[in-house]
Amino acid sequence: MLLKVENLQAQVEEKQILKGLNLEVKPGEVHAIMGPNGSGKSTFASVLAGREDYEVTAGSVAFNGEDLLEMDPEERARKGLFLAFQYPVEIPGVSNKLFMQTAVNAVREEKGLPPLDMFDFDEYAREKIKLLDMRADLLERSVNVGFSGGEKKRNDIFQMALLEPKLCILDETDSGLDIDALRIVANGVNALRSPERGFIVVTHYQRLLDYIKPDHVHVLYNGRIVKSGGFELVHELEEHGYDDIIQQHQGE
């Protein structure tokens, strides 16, 4: 099992947001999480990534059999957990290249691999840049500074491609992408699919899922997964919205 989440409960500023969430991701699987605004999707992603503001009050998360909640955020990242942010952050004064070289070397160190020097890294980055059809000059610029919304998202996926994580969590990476960019990002994700790697894709739209064909689809509502199914669930949601599920759930 790549990821096993059991009865996860978490709060922020005394407010309970995750209220007993269960999820299992096996290597090679792609899970989509959908759900209305404010249901806790980003919170779930942040808790997995180890953001301090979110306090876990109950439950457990095992990542490759290890207790994820015990680890620092950087340790989680080095062990292969990657989060593409809903809102990627700008870091003025630090070139994207130095940033990613540092990150790649941190992960390589964890794997017991020697660091890549500037030249090795350049070569390595060039392959991945092609994959995402990014402008090469974005590497020289400060991390996300002055990037368009779509460029920022693409940059996050580019970072994912460089780090080759074991579990990729994409939080609304498709929001704000034009049609071409969406296809490119989807291709990037598909290129990374492998029997060892798992994905959790948070999205509001069917379009991205059409490209990447998730194995499982979940609906998160009010801090819990209230419905799970296969790809057909996406069509159902697209047609009927969340109302049916919510009502059913509230009736319980």
């Binding site: 990534a49 955020p73 950087e74 990242a77 942010f85 941190a106 964890e110």
Partner: peptide
């Protein structure tokens, strides 16, 4: 800093780098 940490870079390294 969290963004850096999520990419495997420790907080102190992130500050030094920035």
């Amino acid at each position: 800093l969290f963004y850096c940490q999520q990419r495997g870079i420790s907080e102190q390294d992130a500050i030094s780098m920035i």
